[in-house]
Design a binder for these strands. Sequence first.
DNA 1: GAATGGGTACTCGGATATAACTTGTCCGAGTCTCTTAGG
DNA 2: CCTAAGAGACTCGGACAAGTTATATCCGAGTACCCATTC
Lengths: 162, 162
Amino acid sequence: MRLSEGVEWSAHCCAILSVLPPGVTLSGQRLAEFHDVPPAYLVKQLQKLSQGGIVETVKGRNGGYRLARPGSEITLLDVVIAVEGADRAFRCTEIRLKGPSKVAGVKYPNPCGIAAAMWVAEKAWRDELARHTMSDLANHAAVETDPRQLEKAMHWFQEVLS
Amino acid sequence: MRLSEGVEWSAHCCAILSVLPPGVTLSGQRLAEFHDVPPAYLVKQLQKLSQGGIVETVKGRNGGYRLARPGSEITLLDVVIAVEGADRAFRCTEIRLKGPSKVAGVKYPNPCGIAAAMWVAEKAWRDELARHTMSDLANHAAVETDPRQLEKAMHWFQEVLS
DNA sequence: GAATGGGTACTCGGATATAACTTGTCCGAGTCTCTTAGG
DNA sequence: CCTAAGAGACTCGGACAAGTTATATCCGAGTACCCATTC
């Protein structure tokens, strides 16, 4: 089981976007430069965020991306779902309906115990992810980050946003 | 994010093995037949369970697999880890150390907020999986399964174990 | 001096190659069992 | 009738392909800005 790298990139991008002044956009090129990741591939992830209603896009010169709603209303779970899809990690293939013990016509309304346990665990995972908003993560980063790095970041933003 | 099919197969196999009399083994061929899955590939999953200390193997004629310890002491988490590996689903690439804001020499002892949140969520997932043992799942299945199917299964077992 | 039209540069978006991993298969090494021959 | 040796068949285990997904890239469609031209 593995989450794609796009999840990490997207989460960082959304956290960054959450601290921008309202209305200001940042292009995929700039976001890729700031995070030092392949620009074209990052844009592909941002596309998913756009389709998922997490970010809005502004076309044309000086265009880019901005959050579609306040950072305090976007959770980590929202980002993960937008990038990875809403499908469950565990997929039940209903093994119990196959093999030599199968009985024609028998259907089970409830999921089998294994699938049920798996899905309860996944719900616990999702619930935990939903507890963190982009604003929370941005605040946490602002506190934890080295002051010198914070200053360099501020400087860079003022440069590219001018 | 996706769990491999091997997880489902392995969980079902372990649940089956947990209800066998002590010492009795079931071959990969039989387990594959019972679940209607590709035999050679199922054996590959059972290999991982063997390497993970979940099941023991008995070679030679009338050999096969059996649980390495009581089914009440094997959790769903044990099986998932054996098949999928112990690595975390989310991997932090330390983006914050790259890009134009990086400061030479700066290291962060604590994981970044995003990674921390991800890993807390994964722990919640694991804790939930660890709450279910193979014996629990087998009991649940015994109650939920259609009586006719149960009987056919019993019949099949008596046949292949004789 | 102000307005307007066109060119240009920059943006996102989807279609297109490459790499990695999951899925699926095969054959060899090892071991228990059964048979059979001998005492 | 009992013992023992050997052949056989069945088992697991790792090495070997095929298909699917994730990763990375490129080029086209569209839009806002800037500048030159005109009134």
